[in-house]
Design a protein around this nucleic acid. Structure first.
Lengths: 175, 175
DNA sequence: CGTGAAACATTAGCGGC
DNA sequence: GCCGCTAATGTTTCACG
């Protein structure tokens, strides 16, 4: 987590790459009025410092048949863990660990569920907010029944469905 | 919105590009056991059909000083628009249009606010869910006062803050 | 689907401001 | 320190078998 100086040119480079991560270094260099080598040096510096976390392709959920997006608020059991003391419990491959708290177990489960594309601990009545992307209501129902509600740490859930998405960007407002 | 067939190799290509959108075509071709040209043809087809929406760089909010993430539920005025009938109201550059509904005005405002990185119409008590990314509580407070609560269509808001993000991926679960 | 060749892009080293 | 040039290397892309 090295501290890093970001000047006006760096900010322009970041703004460009947030919109199109596949532009060639030459193209970017032209747009920021630099020659290719210093431009590339800046990009590498931004990558190595972690300001640029990575490059990804964005897919269209509907084209893949992922027509249902839900936000699910979750409340967890607070006291102790579900396995108070089982020294050698769970064979290899079991996610359960002795001494694991409800929160730890829940977070590990969330990592393993591909339909959960985001999970935050939140202020307010509920403990976690999950963003869940699935094909349809049948899949959502199955996910709730067999995964989320089946999880021993989950006490309560509240779901809201997205009717329509009006804005959805990975581009952050660069200060 | 052309219908498109996606086979097992296409799915592997999509999975790879969702993780790293900057891999060379050669590298991808190797991983899916194809030579570069048919692999590139598949990628182009996925791009042109819209399954691949685009390529972006992902930035680290904290490295940019964007330390506060909030989810804001919004309820809108339902009846009529704020300008019931002003034939030529609003100079050039004004977003207000004669006959615009509250929902239309609100959505246009959301598009123009860079701190709002996502906006969905939702089921449940509230009409919209906004994801808001800002530097700190001072900026959030200013955004609420001067933008969101100042908007004529907004009746009521409820905010939850993210305490910690445990999962956050742009990678969709390919069915 | 695969091959090969031309066009293009990336990257390291070096000199100059 | 940061910029820009050059030259070698690697990658993309297209016509064709």
């Amino acid at each position: 987590m090295t501290k890093i100086e970001i000047d006006a040119i760096d900010r322009r480079i970041l703004a460009i790459l947030q919109e199109n991560g596949r532009l060639s270094n030459q193209e970017i260099a032209e747009r920021v009025n630099l020659s290719p080598s210093p431009c590339l040096r800046r990009i590498r510096r931004l990558e190595e410092s972690g300001v640029i976390r990575g490059y990804v392709a964005l897919l269209a959920p509907q084209k893949l048949g992922l027509d249902l997006l839900a936000y699910v608020s979750v409340r967890l059991e607070k006291r102790g863990g579900p396995l108070p003391s089982m020294p050698a419990a769970g064979g290899p491959g079991s996610p359960a660990r002795a001494g694991a708290t409800h929160a730890e177990l829940f977070r590990a489960a969330v990592q393993a569920w591909p339909e959960v594309v985001a999970c935050h601990a939140m202020t307010g009545d509920m403990d976690y907010l999950l963003r869940v992307q699935v094909e349809d209501m049948a899949h959502f129902s199955r996910f709730m029944r067999e995964q989320l509600l089946h999880h021993p740490s989950v006490i309560d859930v509240k779901t809201s469905f997205s009717l329509e998405t009006f804005k959805e960007t990975t581009a952050l407002p660069i200060p």
